[in-house]
């Protein structure tokens, strides 16, 4: 049973990783806590559910790839519009405006989703059902969960490669470390900021796309995710890839084991950890101040 608890934790961590990474990048590079980040995840979920619904009867992997691609493109596009029109004028404004505008965007997107997709939940479980289950040490385990972990690992590797090995990544990290210095060095801030934002949005969209085969896409699905991602970012550290990974694992595993052994503590414990880290090391485990 312990192995299964650990697998569940890893699975949950995989989702958190995808959805928190964008939040973390945006916070790290732009210094904005994007409250609308969960809504990008919700867009991904609804778009993917729509596509999976359209493709009933196709092979599971094809459905998933199409849905995930569509979700990433759309969430990325919404991110692009949001960044270039609404957020751009905010970078020089005080904190309260930055936070509030993302709060406003969150409300707008929630209702726009309702306008476009209707208020009802959207089921899209065909890929989940099609993949079935396998036996792991005598316990049945859904293949789809393993699939999600695999995809997340790939996405994580890709981001790591991008950040560590490409010029783009190096410039992004330079901005995170010292914005003014980076600007002085002639790094094209504006273009990079857009790239980082769209990347984060697309990852959130991917997270949403991967979740809908297991649970219907519903209005408000972004809210809970935002809170969980917030905890991860606070624990791991703003803008740190390593931090997001560690934070996701910590939150995922903590949740899985508290539910198994002392379910009452689930949420309070996670917030307690977050507050403790904020008090002791406000920049998070791996973040730079």
């Amino acid at each position: 049973m312990g192995l299964i608890y650990a697998l569940n934790g890893l699975y949950f961590a995989a989702f958190l990783f995808l959805t928190s990474l964008g939040l973390s990048i945006i916070l790290g590079v732009m210094g904005i806590l994007n409250l609308a980040h969960g809504s990008l995840y919700a867009i991904g979920g609804f778009v993917a559910a729509y596509f999976i619904g359209m493709m009933t009867g196709s092979p599971a992997v094809l459905m998933l790839v199409t849905a995930a691609a569509a979700a990433m493109v759309l969430a990325g596009a919404v991110g692009l519009v949001m960044e270039t029109t609404l957020l751009k004028p905010m970078y020089k404004r005080p904190l309260e405006y930055q936070l509030l505008i993302t709060f406003g965007i969150l409300m707008l997107i929630e209702d726009l989703i309702k306008l476009v997709f209707g208020g009802e939940s959207r089921y899209a479980s065909a890929p989940f059902d099609a993949m079935g289950s396998i036996e792991i040490t005598g316990h049945t385990y859904p293949v789809y969960f393993l699939f999600v972990m695999g995809i997340t690992a790939l996405a994580g590797l890709f981001i790591w490669w991008l950040m560590a090995k490409t010029k783009l990544g190096i410039m992004l990290r330079a901005i995170e470390m010292d914005r003014d210095m980076a600007q002085a060095m002639g790094i094209p801030m504006r273009r990079l900021t857009v790239v980082a934002f769209v990347l984060g949005a697309a990852l959130a969209g991917l997270g949403g796309a991967l979740v809908v085969p297991t649970t219907p896409a519903v209005l408000g699905m972004g809210m809970d995710v935002l809170i969980m991602a917030f905890i991860v970012v606070v624990i791991g550290g703003l803008g740190s890839l390593k931090g997001t990974l560690v934070g996701s694992l910590l939150v995922g595993l903590t949740r899985s084991f508290t539910v198994a052994f002392y379910a009452e503590l689930e949420m309070p414990l996670l917030f307690m950890i977050a507050v403790l880290i904020l008090v002791v090391k406000p920049e998070g485990l791996f973040g730079q101040k």
Binding site: M90, R93, L100, I101, F103, G104, L108, E110, D111
Partner: peptide, 20 residues
């Protein structure tokens, strides 16, 4: 309206942009 968040959120965005 059922779409009240559109109004409340839209007001907020306009407020931040136009009437800081």
């Amino acid at each position: 309206t059922e779409y009240w968040m559109l109004i409340v959120g839209g007001t907020l965005v306009l407020l931040v942009l136009l009437l800081p």
